[in-house]
Design a protein around this nucleic acid. Structure first.
Lengths: 276, 276
DNA sequence: GTTCCGCATGAATCGATAG
DNA sequence: ACTATCGATTCATGCGGAA
């Protein structure tokens, strides 16, 4: 039986592997790179002082392979060390901009069940950054795909349309007066904000930094359509690629560590029995 | 009758006024400076490119007046313009560190009722930064003072603390604040995280940028004890100073605009009838 | 007295239009 | 080309009057 072309899983250092991918070929890059000095025993353990320098060549390649209307989402959070937050993430944002990236937005992932612990000088860290970068200002975005249920205030509000609704609408010149009202009448969903509320995944114990599937899912729905290409240069155990496949997107995953690569292959094979 | 020493309200530019305050005399600085190019019609309207340069002299004076074990909380959020987020807040953090400040933590204020609107390239902005800076690693912190009942603490507890009931009922002012906390004593309590869920204040019509009282309250309780000195160099309509007074802290507020200064004086006088 | 409901109002941001 | 101003879009909240 012929192997399907996607998902493509590649074992190797993304600094090398990315060079083999064609330019302007990826619709969405969603990744969570190894954090500085975290997971020292598994990855190389990049020192915070060297983090920007280490990441920039990768950023350059990601810029090359991304389509002009594609999006790059970087999930990262600086650690606290010796009583202070490191600044390498701030410096990375500034450096990526110098590289040509547009820093379009910073989403907040609020981790509802964050890591437990107690320290004398700080509380538990319950959020991470999801930095959005783009090559151009005209990128693809499908906002309707991630709309959320409206608050219950809506029921009351929409029973009777108030006078000001009409007044405000009147200021609009020409046609379309009744249109917007009709939109609201059967509307049950609203657009989300740039704050995401998701619980962290607890079931995967074999990879040390697993984010919930809902996280890549949200961004894949928002920035790609079916058949689009989704790249994760730090695949880990393959969450992003697995979600992409389920959503009928074409995933490309790169992973340096053989253990994680094997794990990702295994998980994906389990969902795609024909591959076996 | 003798005038009480606090709260002290000072009309003027904090770049000048701060020079009159003694060194190492303030326990907590909580402030929300004018954001770049926002409120242009009221404040000067600092251009994003000049923001860091404008703020640094103020940061220097704040560093001087703060006690070694004191804390500086800066509420700020960069705006999006022409499809991209500005970077002046990131640059300000780096510049303040060069000035000697320790960047201890970044709290997230999740604004439940954020500004509405729809754009093709972004969602509504529902969060702001609360940057914590310190002079030394051994700062005061009273974590037990902000413990919250298990479960959905933000909705149930903080919402009610911002009620205007406190303002209207003068006889209760001063004692009412602590009582509500007692309600929770027999419940199981946990330490909060670095994400705060609060709605913005919508009832104040006379100042355009009022944060909810629960916001300064949380940090005042966390970083000061009764009798401590709380400084707000950009007082606005006086929310921080008013909350400080109710919590029996000694407030110092500085405000440049005469209209806001008068408003702050008025609000505080209403809560302190003996001053009249 | 409770609950219900009408209503104004935002630390917003973009695209178009005007100078 | 570049800046200043304006209109359009959108939704959670709390107050206050009504049922």
């Amino acid at each position: 039986m012929e192997q399907p072309q996607y998902p493509r899983l590649i074992l190797g250092d993304c600094r090398d592997v990315l060079k083999q991918l064609p330019s302007d070929s990826v619709d969405l890059i969603f990744t969570s790179p190894p954090y500085a000095d975290r997971r020292k025993h598994t990855y190389g353990g990049i020192a915070p002082e060297e983090y920007v320098e280490w990441f920039l060549p990768i950023g350059q390649e990601l810029f090359r392979v991304l389509k002009p209307d594609g999006t790059f989402i970087l999930n990262i959070k600086e650690k606290a060390e010796n009583g202070e937050r490191h600044t390498y993430v701030l410096e990375l944002i500034l450096a990526l901009r110098r590289q040509g990236w547009l820093w379009t937005e910073e989403f907040i992932w609020h981790k509802k069940n964050c890591y437990p612990g107690k320290w004398p000088n700080r509380f538990r860290d319950a959020w991470e950054r999801l930095l959005q970068f783009n090559k151009t200002k005209r990128f693809k975005m499908f906002q309707e795909e991630v709309m959320v249920p409206m608050g219950d205030w809506a029921e009351k509000r929409l029973k009777h349309l108030s006078a000001t609704d009409h007044v405000r609408d009147n200021s609009r010149v020409g046609s379309g007066f009744g249109k917007r009202v009709a939109n609201w009448l059967y509307r049950e969903k609203v657009y989300p904000t740039n704050v995401l509320h998701l619980a962290t995944e607890t079931k995967n114990r074999r990879h040390s930094a697993v984010f919930p599937e809902a996280l890549p899912e949200w961004f894949i729905k928002l920035f790609t359509r079916e058949g689009d290409v989704v790249l994760d240069p730090f695949m880990g155990s393959g969450t992003t690629i697995r979600v992409a496949r389920r959503l009928n997107r074409n995933g490309i995953g790169i992973e340096l560590m053989p253990e994680y690569f094997a794990l990702a292959e295994e998980e994906i094979a389990r969902e795609m029995p024909r591959l076996l």
